[in-house]
Design a protein around this nucleic acid. Structure first.
Lengths: 135, 135
DNA sequence: TTGCTAATTAGCAACTGTTGAGAATTAAGT
DNA sequence: ACTTAATTCTCAACAGTTGCTAATTAGCAA
């Protein structure tokens, strides 16, 4: 995801308006590596802007996602997680605390057993126990 | 997932009863590589046993999953998909038709960038366009 | 600065997938 | 056949998300 300033330009160029609610979400998301859910972002946003609507949070997240500034990822936790890091990376999910960590692989593994499948994207999810939870 | 006959034994040994509803689901799932949702299984089951409850389908799927006979996988399609193949394999999801194909990788890729994470499981999802949809 | 207009917001209802609860039924061992 | 605990079905409830709409507001132009 680009910086709040850059997003402001991009939104206006697309004919979208830059409201205080959106600016707040830009700030909350930029550089955020916690893979927050809409609910978590709504809680964070509410602290700074009481009265902001959950609907508005969803709307802005969807706008950002359809602009490619954000990835919406489903880890099977019941709610979508949003990732402002759209560069190539993978995820490690802790079975204990649920934290989602960013990780990398040297190169995407080749798959076999399916002819003629045109791969656009490969996503790896590691599950296990993170260092903090190992006890 | 084991065969219906083997599951019948396993269920009784665990103190679970083997009802006609469950037997039907055992049959529908055994060897099924279509990664069906609960809804799809409910529709299939309803053809052979009109009046069967969606709740019963969910219950049996959950029973099988907690016995490790079935994997519940979330591909972000809105509903959980169930996979009776619990051997090591990966998935390729077609962006066009939504079909989930089973694929294999030579070996699990090593991850970097996170110290002390104890990996229990690595799951790869390939997304792209399958042969049937390439046109 | 003011006015215009389309975009946005907030609030709430609605929707989907899934689970909880409880009365009636039934599998499976005695 | 009898007993009992497991299961089924029905229906309500729940979580996450989206649709709808009146009221508000950003952004532009004069």
């Amino acid at each position: 995801m680009r910086s709040p300033a850059e997003l402001t330009q991009a939104f206006r160029q697309t004919g979208l308006k830059v409201t205080p609610q959106r600016q707040l979400l830009f700030r909350l998301l930029h550089g955020n590596t916690s893979h927050p859910s809409a609910d978590v972002l709504f809680a964070l946003a509410s602290k700074e802007m009481p009265g902001i609507s959950l609907r508005t949070v969803y709307q802005t997240l969807n706008d950002l996602a359809s602009m490619g500034e954000l990835h919406s990822i489903d880890f099977g936790t019941g709610s979508a997680r949003f990732d402002p890091n759209v560069t190539d990376h993978q995820h490690a999910v802790c079975n204990e605390c649920g934290t989602v960590h960013d990780v990398h692989v040297s190169r995407a593994p080749k798959m076999s057993g399916l002819e003629g499948f045109d791969i656009h994207d490969a996503h790896i999810v590691y599950r296990g126990v993170c260092a903090d939870c190992a006890s």
